[in-house]
């Protein structure tokens, strides 16, 4: 027995597989494809937004590394973190800043790192005051 959803006379595809669909099935397929289109459109919009965010993200990242350098140096001058860590963290901050949108910001961080390497807390404090005043 042939199900009423299918038109038995219009089998144009693979033998035994109906190709003509009933209005109900067609409407469901249309709705599903519209839903898929909406989801795809939402995803494309989100992807575009994600691309747009990229520059802002780079700026946020640079600002964050800049603040990280200041906080690390301040904690080091206060004796809250060891010199080995401070040196490494400042080196990382300098690298990240140099490859970001604010490469000039790496320079004072390098000066702070040099002060930490020498164990010169006074210079580090002075540099921090200068940077805070900017």
């Amino acid at each position: 027995m042939i199900r009423s959803d299918y038109d038995a006379t219009s089998h144009a595809g693979v033998a035994g597989y109906p190709t003509a669909l009933s209005p109900t099935v067609r409407a469901s397929a249309l709705l599903a494809s519209r839903a898929m289109l909406r989801i795809a459109a939402a995803l494309i919009l989100a992807a575009i937004a994600a691309c747009g965010d990229r520059h802002e993200q780079e700026l946020r990242s640079a600002a964050s590394w800049s603040k990280t350098a200041l906080v690390v140096a301040r904690y080091w001058t206060e004796g809250q973190v060891p010199g080995t860590y401070a040196r490494r963290a400042l080196e990382k901050a300098s690298q990240e800043l140099a490859k970001g949108p604010l490469p000039d910001a790496a320079e004072p961080v390098d000066e702070l790192r040099a002060a930490v390497e020498r164990g010169d807390r006074d210079t580090a404090r002075r540099l921090l005051q200068e940077l805070s005043a900017r």
Binding site: R60, S61, A63, S64, W65, K67, T68, V71, V72, Y75, G79, Q80, V81, Y85, R88, A89, K92, A93, E96
Partner: peptide, 20 residues
């Protein structure tokens, strides 16, 4: 204004509360 992109940044989080 510090975001955690590396562990070097995360390592600072307990200092304000627990010092060295």
């Amino acid at each position: 204004g510090i975001r955690v992109e590396e562990y070097e940044q995360a390592a600072l989080m307990l200092v304000p509360a627990l010092g060295g």
